[in-house]
Write a protein that binds this DNA or RNA. Structure first.
Lengths: 334, 334
DNA sequence: CTGAAAGCGCTTACAG
DNA sequence: CTGAAAGCGCTTACAG
């Protein structure tokens, strides 16, 4: 490997000082058109690119941010991350992606690892740790955008997906279809969005005069995956044949549940109707295709990044919470 | 935001020079046990973490690497990336993830963006650009691990998945099941792994005395997604009812094809058998579950990272190519 | 419009 | 075993 060209190399060849080179490439400070072109020609020729670390050291900005998500294997998150990344790259930012496996300890580790890395900000999905840790982080380090969790702090912006409303839409749809014995595959116990979803589920039942059967709400699913959905639906339906419909915390659980129905010989939706949440691409491609709650994941990512950038560039501005609504998409599974 | 603690803060409070602090935290150079403990106590108390950029500037190592993949929405890549990340984090490395959408221009942009970021190395999946650009990059910048593409260069390591063998296994399995009219949904034209897969497909047919029908090999699929699989299978089967089996470049295409069959009223596997490639988690969860070629994606990621680390730490060592084999997994779709 | 000086937060020789 | 000096590659005031 050769040594990379530095600003000094450019300066020497262009016959100017390195401050002048800096002006030329950053389009900053007064500089004559001639010298500017001169310098840029040398930059071009040498393939010079400023060293980000050196820049970061003095500007205190690294043009990097971090995303922390529970599970990159859940198609929801890649699509969200895409929204973040596309926006970030467009603004010359690079992105670190961290997985937590839904483990609160990993969240904190990721947070501090990103801080040491010098990111300018963090986007945090479904944070499960304590408010205090997060606030301390936001105090000492950098702005944070949190999704689906409410934390009040000047350096933290909140984006909430309306899980409560989504759950209600799903259940009301099932009730309209004539179901009364509706179960729910709920998400991880510690997830704040799960809490709101379960509340929406229960409220919808109650409002329509239906009882809430506690044991039909399956709740200790650490990570909401296909396999989890398959296993818990299998067990649930075997033990409770009176159930005719299932609402799931996310599409992966729902698709796993469809598989369980197929294996048990239950026809979907005739014997058991199923509704998911998220509307991942796959939802329309499984058979039967999945009725679900649509969330605009890509836009959500863009919004999160826009919000973070705003906080980075205007440290003193206030960032009001954003609420994102969802829609029912009816397909073959109901 | 408060200012972060620096090595000077620690030094001042501990009453030593900053070199001594450096020794204490890096466990390097001779230092007395007493001072070491003394210093670490202060480090602990202040929550001090060395600034990675400052470290990087002097050591010329940033403890970051980059991964470039075509499409994070394809579950193959998250699983691969997980293997890379888990290994990386364990070695104190952080990872940048870049998408290219299968676009060769984006690959080059990502490569140079990562270089400016100061990564210590890059893992590159199914590179579609020219050898020369990649070699120039490896010359000037950092070691590269390339998957599924053969490039000879001292600073580039190659890992090849045996796509050729996988394709043969798939076709032989279909022939054994009695199929003679077998079509293929091939991948992106520029993908080198596609070329080898198509070759395996054709060779298997020829070896069993079956003709290769060119128009049954659907080849201009820019990005091998569910939707692409659905659309091209739909078209293929509508126009060529004599086809009784489809082999797909990857599981997403295959699952899209299953959906197309369902909509056309073809029963899988009775009317049309389908084989995928990759064995993503989903393959066992769709109905009918998918016969496919198993690739150990997570291990592949670990191997790539191990290989890259080795090149970073031993710049002069030679890295022989690795060949990874695959297995047939028979499920319900054949 | 351009350059000399200082410094971002670290580590790597070099003295002692 | 410990500290004074130099420097990694940049940018930000400050002079002129």
């Amino acid at each position: 490997m050769e040594r990379l060209a530095t600003i000094n190399d450019v300066a020497k060849i262009a016959g100017v000082s390195r401050q002048t080179v800096s002006r030329a490439i950053n389009n900053k400070g007064e500089i004559s058109l001639d010298t500017r072109e001169q310098v840029l020609k040398v930059v071009q020729h040498l393939g010079y690119r400023p060293n980000r670390m050196a820049q970061g050291l003095v500007t205190q900005h690294t043009l990097t941010i971090g995303i922390i998500i529970p599970d990159i294997s859940n198609p929801f998150f890649p699509e969200f991350a895409r929204g973040v990344q596309d926006f970030a790259h467009q603004e010359e930012y690079n992105v670190f992606l961290c997985n937590t496996d839904g483990n609160p300890d990993e969240e904190v580790k990721a947070l501090y690892s990103l801080a040491a890395q010098g990111v300018d900000g963090v986007i945090l999905f479904t944070y499960q740790g304590s408010d205090d840790i997060l606030k301390e982080f936001a105090d000492k380090y950098h702005p944070v955008v949190v999704l689906n969790r409410y934390v009040e702090h000047p350096n933290i912006a909140v984006i909430m997906v309306n899980n409560y409303h989504g759950a209600k839409l799903a259940v009301e749809h099932l009730i309209e279809r004539g179901h009364t014995n509706i179960a729910m595959l709920a998400g991880p116990d510690t997830s704040p969005s799960k809490v709101r979803q379960v509340k929406g589920f229960c409220d919808a039942l109650t409002e329509h005069g239906l009882p809430v059967v506690a044991k039909w709400i399956i709740s200790s699913l650490p990570l909401p995956t296909l396999t989890q959905g398959y296993q818990s639906a299998h067990q649930l339906l075997s033990k409770n044949p009176q159930i005719t419909a299932i609402f799931a915390y996310n599409d992966l659980l729902a698709i796993g549940a469809i598989r369980a129905c197929n294996e048990l010989g239950y026809r979907v939706p005739t014997d058991c109707a199923i509704v998911g949440f998220d509307d991942i691409q796959l939802a329309s491609m499984v058979t039967p295709s999945l009725t679900t709650i649509y969330v605009n994941k890509y836009t959500l990512g863009e919004q999160a990044m826009a919000r973070l950038l705003n906080m980075i560039n205007n440290p003193d501005s206030v960032s009001p919470s954003i609420y994102v609504d969802v829609e029912l998409v009816v397909r073959e599974s109901t």
